[in-house]
């Protein structure tokens, strides 16, 4: 890890609260700060507010109160246009990949450039040759070297390939921060390590901050620089993986640590907070 980069704060969250309607808040009074190049995993079973916290970091979900600063910019203070520009430098990947099934792989990747695409080009679905080239580079970097695939429809790909396309779409944004919402939950076990390695590798080479929600304990321990565990919308643990003792795990998952094996955690899928 880059020692010098460690000093700069990339993401800062102060007193963040989000409540849906009148029910109990999904997250309550959370304050955190993440450094440049840090790999952070938000850990916890489904429904503890991981998804909401992640979406508050790029204002896909507008927090009820509190401050979010990305790279020194306070998102809440930005104009509508300013927010779109800020989002352009925050990459995001999802559990269900969120590709447009009927569009080609290449078009899906280029959609990462929509934030900067001119009006006329956008109206005529006419990306520039530079965008095409950038998309191909991003795809190669995301591990899809087979150029036969680029013109195929996105729904003809396998799960792992789809997530690689989604990663390429994120890469083409040239992000400073990567938000990842359960990126391996819909993949089979073989694919999971490959995708995690890929994200880790990209983050290390480019010095990116990664904030990833996960419910798989072992994966979190293997890859995270820092684990943050949530329960009832609040932080219950914040520290490096080696401090995550069995006692803490029991508190987070509400059951003995040795019962949390792969099989059980696979079945839990994060329902999007509504």
């Amino acid at each position: 890890m880059n020692i010098e980069a460690d000093q700069t704060t990339m993401v800062e969250v102060r007193n963040l609260t989000k409540a849906y309607g009148s029910s109990a808040p999904a997250i309550e009074d959370i304050s955190l700060s993440f450094k440049k190049g840090e790999f952070i995993v938000l850990l916890g079973p489904s429904g503890v507010g991981k998804s909401t916290l992640l979406r508050c970091l790029n204002f896909l979900v507008r927090p009820t109160s509190g401050i979010v600063k990305i790279n020194g910019q306070e998102l809440g203070a930005l104009s509508k246009k300013g927010l779109l520009q800020a989002r352009h430098h925050i990459g995001m990947i999802f559990q269900e990949f969120n590709l447009v099934n009927r569009m080609s792989v290449l078009m899906n990747v280029m959609c990462g450039r929509l934030g900067t695409l001119g009006t006329w080009r956008a109206l005529t679905y006419n990306f520039s040759p530079e965008d095409h080239e950038a998309a191909v580079r991003a795809l190669v970097r995301a591990g899809l070297e087979d150029q036969e695939l680029y013109l195929r429809r996105a729904d003809t790909l396998s799960g792992g390939q789809k997530q690689r396309v989604a990663i390429a779409r994120m890469l083409i944004q040239e992000p400073k921060v990567i938000l990842a919402d359960e990126p391996i939950a819909s993949l089979d076990v073989m694919m999971r390590a490959q995708i995690m390695d890929l994200i880790k590798d990209i983050a290390q080479r480019d010095g990116l901050t990664v904030v990833m929600s996960l419910h798989q304990l072992d994966v979190a321990k293997n890859y995270a620089d820092r684990i943050i565990a949530l329960a009832q919308g609040q932080v219950t643990f914040d520290g490096p993986p080696n401090e995550l003792t069995d006692a803490v795990i029991e508190r987070v998952f509400n059951k003995p640590a040795d019962e949390i094996d792969e099989e059980q955690t696979v079945e839990i899928t994060e329902a999007p907070a509504e």
């Binding site: 290449l106 040759p129 095409h132 080239e133 191909v136 580079r137 190669v140 970097r141 150029q147 680029y150 013109l151």
Partner: peptide, 13 residues
């Protein structure tokens, strides 16, 4: 840098 086969790209465009 990653070499992009320019033939493929031209064909796509």
């Amino acid at each position: 840098t990653i070499a992009v086969a320019s033939g493929v790209l031209d064909a796509v465009i």
